[in-house]
Write a protein that binds this DNA or RNA. Structure first.
Length: 959
RNA sequence: GCGGGAGUUGCCAAGCCUGGUCAAAGGCGCAGGGCUUAGGACCCUGUCUCUUAGGGGUUCGUGGGUUCAAAUCCCACCUCCCGCACCA
């Protein structure tokens, strides 16, 4: 049993003291690996660990391959969630305080300070950093920064002026979910119950009632041709109001909504719904006259509180009309008569529906009246069917014959153009409440700033680079291309939160996904900022232009910024040395946003030689098969886990459970299993010391060959970041080879194997080091090697060490032993004697010929037999046609590589090789083994088995 | 709806691109044995099914097809998961 935290701490101290991970400019080739920095609003949990561990493995691997690796880390303070948390602390939110105390284990005195947002960020910043150190991440901490450092602010200001000068920043209007009390946009974590404030665009169709406009909200403007009447709620007290100079009648709720949608609204008076009933209005465009009727399904809080009625296609309208005809509403006789004369006007035809589709669905859902809960569902079904499959009929003027999906937008624009319509945004899951309790609305922000990701030229460049750069795994490349296509203008500033003020409009703060696109360049500068050689006062746009783009006169800039000319030059050189980013790691959730922006903005700001070289994307982590979430209570804080299990077992458990893009399942059984495995390997390292092996034997060559193959495969896997596969080979695949080897040498009573085993274990530890860096050091020390595992070199592949003969020979031994055991298992006999018979030379010849033909693709038995009979040497097959079939099957059931091997290196002396088996058989089964060749006259062959011998498949006799 | 991904033997999960190493790696679980005072840990063996000679049968979401040969290629269908925006 080892004390993991203690052992790990020992090695981390050594790495830190000897500055293992601090990288500066050198003559060596560099490798710059970065990860998306964390947002410090909670401690790290196991899930966060995956991306960072992957990046660390990458960094360590490249370091061992001789690269000067830079792996830095920053902290992303920018954003609103921390602000929201601080506000909740100010309001003494019991739940949050409790969560901090018990879930996150924050000391009480710290929580008190959390009413100040920065204190929250600072606290979790340190917490996360401590976790990263404890995980053994090989980070150069001299380059740490936060995104609210004044120097970083200057960097962002430069970036934004730069983008604006390239015409990529624009201003415009933009609807957002909004809290009227906080005067702030709301997102999911600002609302009660964490509801995402989605909204839908409705079309307001204006009906004329004398001098007034009755606005109705609809999702289906194309149905204007089928309007037969309007609906109002008789009990609602409607408002008369001036809306942008026009006199409207609408519900009070709607009047309020319109104010936020940038309309000038002043109230003029009121009118009850019942008073509106019976009045006639004019349909825009068609100028038809229709009557207003009362209906209870109309809710004043939805839309405008007035509904245009299209009974042929809207189940609600159809049912309400039926209800009214039945005389359910208490309305006067004239109105009732008017209603009775109304017939649905069908304007859309859709396969599977009749003249009045609304009637069809109402019957299908067995709806009785307009208060039926199934009406929503019926509406949804009909709407989606008609939208995708419906076609407008002849009674729709210039739109006749068009598909609904296409006509909808055209009709909307047509009525908008004639000022007979307007647009209303409505929250989908209303009412949505802000955490402060206020009901949210949709607001149009008029002076919103955007990054213009809709720019065609910019998109094209992004596509080109995405297709050119390395993306791991490659499957995700298409997703990037798709994202680039649908990306539009993106709001890049908001009015609250931590961050950098927009340089030309100080009312705005650069939004968090927009201030984190090219910050990898800032890591170069951060080192000098932390050394206090550069402060915010030294930084202006000229400085950045010079350091990052090499523009301007360094003497002038040095003077202007009060920065020593040499220092300026050093920083510039360091940037030129480390840039571009060679690999950027992130979770796949950042593909549709950050990672794509990262590519976009590099293209906009930097010359091509500084564009990122590679993106590595990984899936998320599940906890015992379930999604991690606060509400499930299945979040394990990373630091707790490290204390309990050690960092290395956790690192491996996260990485070994799934390939890159798959969700990895983290479970405690796996962690324990891996910890045991590591402890066993560690124990094994004390057994062997470095030593020359004097007489190299067959199994030694075999083990070396196998090791070489595994190194080769592992290296290939690492280059593609297939860490699961690599780990698998290092942890388990080597084991089975070592086991076979040990079995062999034990049977032969060999003792001179220390040197070779030491070599195998050393290489294994080297390869394990990027994954489990702490315990690898411990192993390295136990093996008695010089230096440390972290500083050892990744094994170099020497293909010439792969010896085909030994590989084949051991294969023969293994498969023969397996066959013997198989026979014993089936026959259940206790053996007293085992005899093997190897195939005659002509069979080898035949085998060789068949193999050649199979490689060429000829597997037809008849053809092969003919070929063999033609040759005198192999003409014996005549006597046993079945032989050919068996050989073909033997060959086909082997891996291609092995076939190639056999073709190249054909002859092994089977008899000689199989003699080696006698020691194994003696040891395993305690019986004697004899080997004869098939036609050896001395052979003992009581059951006449010898003749069934095949190459690589000796005949066996057991009794 | 659009876009992406997945469905494998008790569970997790490789394999699929490049068809024959596939009854299908590995881990976990389970069973038997060893070790141990006991438990844990560890080691060995087994883990679709039939089989007294190294073999056969039926499997990789469902149904077709291509091929000497399909988990793997093609077509259709079913089911599940994720993203769709100003949010880190």
């Amino acid at each position: 049993m080892i004390n993991w935290p203690l052992m790990e701490d020992k090695w981390r101290r050594r790495w830190r003291e000897e500055k293992y991970f601090e990288s500066d400019v050198s003559i060596r080739k560099k490798f710059f690996v970065t990860v998306a920095y964390p947002y410090p609003n909670s401690p790290q949990h196991i899930g966060h660990g995956r991306t960072y561990t992957l990046a660390d493995v990458h960094a360590r691997f490249m370091r061992m391959r001789g690269y000067n690796v830079l792996f830095p880390m920053g902290f992303h303070y920018t954003g609103t969630p921390i602000l929201g948390m601080a506000r909740r602390i100010q309001e003494n939110d019991k739940d949050l305080i409790e969560a901090f105390r018990t879930l996150y284990k924050v000391p009480v005195q710290n929580i008190k300070e959390f009413s100040e947002p920065v204190k929250i960020a600072d606290y979790f910043h340190q917490e996360i950093k401590a976790g990263m150190i404890e995980m053994g991440f090989s980070i150069d901490w001299r380059r740490e920064f936060t995104t609210i450092d004044p120097e970083y602010n200057k960097f962002i200001e430069w970036q934004f002026r730069k983008l604006r000068s390239k015409n990529l920043v624009k201003q415009g209007s933009h609807p957002v979910g909004w809290c009227p009390k906080d005067q702030n946009p709301v997102s999911q974590h600002d609302t009660l119950g964490d509801v995402e404030p989605n909204f839908t665009e409705y079309v307001l169709v204006k009906f004329r009632l004398e001098n007034y406009i009755l606005a109705t909200a609809t999702l289906r403007p194309e149905t204007i041709f089928g309007v037969t009447n309007l609906w109002v709620n008789a009990d609602t007290v409607y408002k008369k109001a001036k809306v942008n100079g026009e006199d409207w009648i609408l519900s009070p709720e709607c009047a309020r909504k319109l104010e936020f949608l940038d309309k000038k609204v002043s109230l003029l008076g009121e009118i009850k719904g019942s008073e509106l009933a019976g009045k006639k209005v004019r349909v825009p465009q068609t100028h038809k006259e229709v009557t207003i009727f009362p209906a209870s399904f109309v809710k004043s809080e939805n839309g405008t509180g007035i509904v245009m009625s299209v009974p042929a296609h809207a189940p609600f309208d159809y049912q309400a009309l039926e209800d009214i005809k039945k005389g359910i509403n208490k309305i006067d006789q004239n109105l009732l008569n008017a209603a009775k004369s109304i017939n649905p006007i069908s304007i859309i035809e859709t396969n599977g529906y009749g003249e009045v589709p609304a009637k069809d669905v109402i019957q299908k859902f067995k709806i009785q009246d307009q208060n039926s809960p199934y009406l929503e569902e019926a509406t949804k079904e009909l709407y989606s069917k008609e939208f995708y499959a419906g076609r407008l009929k002849d009674n729709t003027g210039q739109f006749a014959g068009k598909m609904v999906a296409e006509a909808k937008e055209e009709v909307k624009n047509w009525i908008l153009q004639n000022k007979d319509a307007d647009v209303l945004f409505e929250l989908n899951d209303a009412p949505i409440r802000c955490r402060c309790g206020t009901e949210c609305v949709v607001k149009i922000l008029n002076d919103q700033w955007f990054l213009d990701y809709s720019s065609k030229k910019w998109k094209e460049e992004a596509h080109t680079w995405i297709n050119e750069m390395k993306i791991l795994p490659d499957e995700i490349r298409n997703e990037f291309n798709y994202v680039i296509d649908w990306l539009r203008e993106r709001a890049c500033a908001r009015q609250h939160g931590l961050g950098t003020k927009l340089p030309w409009d100080k009312d705005w703060i650069v939004e968090s996904l927009s201030d984190s696109v090219i910050y990898m360049a800032y890591y170069i500068l951060a080192k000098y900022v932390n050394k206090k050689q550069i402060t915010a006062e030294n930084l202006n746009d000229d400085f950045f232009e010079y350091v990052f783009l090499g523009k301007g006169d360094k003497n002038k800039i040095s003077h202007e910024c009060k920065v020593d000319k040499e220092l300026l030059e050093i920083i510039r050189e360091e940037f030129e040395y480390f840039y571009p980013v060679n690999a950027r790691h992130s979770g796949r959730d950042l593909v549709p946003n950050h990672l794509t922006f990262f590519v976009f903005n590099h293209i906009a700001i930097f010359p091509k030689k500084y564009w990122p070289e590679e993106i590595v994307v990984n899936g998320s982590v599940l906890m015992e098969g379930a999604k991690m979430s606060k509400s499930m209570g299945n979040i394990i804080p990373l630091r707790d886990a490290i204390q309990t299990y050690g960092a290395d077992p956790i690192r491996l458990a996260i990485l070994i459970s799934a390939e890159l893009l798959q969700d990895a399942d983290f479970n405690l059984d796996a962690v324990k299993g891996i910890r045991n495995k590591l402890e066993i390997i560690l124990e094994g390292c004390s057994k062997y010391k470095q030593k020359e092996t004097t007489t190299v034997q067959q199994e030694d060559r075999w083990l070396e060959s196998r090791l070489e193959q595994i190194v080769c495969e592992t290296t290939l896997a690492m280059e593609k970041m297939r860490v699961r596969e690599a780990l698998h080979k290092i942890l388990y695949e080597i084991d089975s080879d070592i086991q076979w080897y040990l079995k062999r040498i034990e049977a032969k009573n060999r003792t001179d194997v220390e040197g070779i085993l030491h070599d195998v274990l050393s290489k294994r530890v080297t390869m394990l080091s990027p994954f489990a860096p702490h315990v690898a050091e411990e192993m390295w020390e136990k093996l008695g090697n010089d230096g440390t595992a972290s500083r050892s070199s990744w094994p170099v592949i020497t293909e010439t060490k792969i010896d085909p003969i030994s590989l084949q020979s051991e294969n023969l031994l293994k498969s023969t032993l397996e066959d013997i055991k198989n026979i014993l298992k089936v026959t259940k006999i206790t053996p007293t004697k085992i005899i093997l018979y190897t195939a005659d030379p002509w069979k080898m010849k035949a085998y060789e010929k068949i193999l050649k033909n199979v490689t060429k693709g000829e597997t037809k038995i008849g053809v092969l037999i003919k070929l063999l009979i033609e040759d005198k040497e192999t003409a014996f097959v005549k006597n046993d046609p079945d032989f050919v079939k068996k050989i073909v099957n033997d060959i086909l059931s082997e891996p291609i590589e092995l076939r190639e091997l056999k073709e190249k290196m054909f002859h092994i002396d089977e008899k000689k090789v199989l003699t080696e088996l006698s020691s194994l058989v003696q040891k395993d089964l305690g019986v004697n083994l004899q080997v004869f060749s098939e036609s050896d006259p001395q052979r003992s062959d009581p059951k006449n088995r010898a003749r069934s011998a095949r190459p690589f498949k000796p005949a066996i006799f057991i009794e």
